[in-house]
Simulated assay, not measured.
Amino acid sequence: MTVVDMAPLSLAGYQQVWDIRFSNSSPIDSALQTEYVNYLAGGGGIFAMGENASFTTRNDSVLSLIAAAGGGSLSYTIPGDAQTVIAPFTGPNAVSTIQYLAAGGVTTSGTGQFITSNASGGSGVAFGVGTLANAHAGALTAIFDVNFLQTDANFESQQLTKNLIGFIGQQVGGTVPEPASWALMISGFGMIGTVMRRRKVILAA
């Protein structure tokens, strides 16, 4: 596992990239967007963090990444914090609902599917292999709430995080990680980013 503040010069060799930056000062700029789309097209898996409505610059950059990868033009919304977890993200670590603290989200899931949602939209969206028009071999996930990865994240958030790791790993690596094969890394923001290692995983915090 590699933990960095910014993406390295090359993502070659990494199975998963978890970009858990959320500040408006850390958008996914055009150069990094191109790097991420190429990485996805090559069969990589990415998690991109969004946040609530106070983080427009960061959120817009996540939506732009989704569009560039071919996941559709998604619109930002505030769906409310109580949401249902959608299969397959309900397992193997059992979780059916989640209570975010101050979530943003999107109105539709584009060419992907919701990870969590309610009647007003969803805070999590996932694009499995074959669903991104410009990156068929990649898997892209995003959740618009940083709190679910914080050090005091509740049990449901922890279960959902483990399931996200497994989903990405299964999509791009063909394997679901055992409990002993994922790790928690504390970033400079005091968040916990959870990643699974097969070859190498990079965490941008």
Rank of each mutant, 00 (worst) to 15 (best):
V4N: 04
M6W: 04
I20R: 03
I20T: 15
R21N: 15
S23V: 03
S25D: 13
P27M: 02
I28D: 06
A31V: 15
L32E: 13
Q33H: 00
Y36V: 00
G43S: 00
G45L: 03
F47V: 13
N52M: 04
S54N: 12
S54Q: 01
T57D: 11
R58C: 07
S64L: 09
A69G: 04
T77P: 02
P79H: 07
A82H: 09
Q83S: 11
V85K: 04
I86A: 03
A87H: 06
A94G: 04
V95L: 02
T97N: 10
T97E: 08
Q99N: 15
A103N: 14
G104C: 10
V106I: 15
T107A: 15
T108W: 12
S109G: 08
G110K: 10
G110W: 03
G110N: 02
F114H: 13
I115G: 02
A119L: 13
V129N: 02
T131D: 02
A133L: 05
A139S: 15
A139D: 06
T141E: 14
I143G: 00
F144D: 07
T151Y: 05
F155N: 14
F155A: 14
E156R: 04
Q159L: 10
Q159A: 14
G169M: 12
G169Y: 03
Q171K: 05
P177H: 14
P179L: 10
P179N: 09
L184V: 11
M185E: 12
G190M: 02
M191V: 01
I192V: 11
T194I: 11
V195H: 06
R197G: 00
R199F: 06
V201R: 09
L203N: 11
L203S: 11
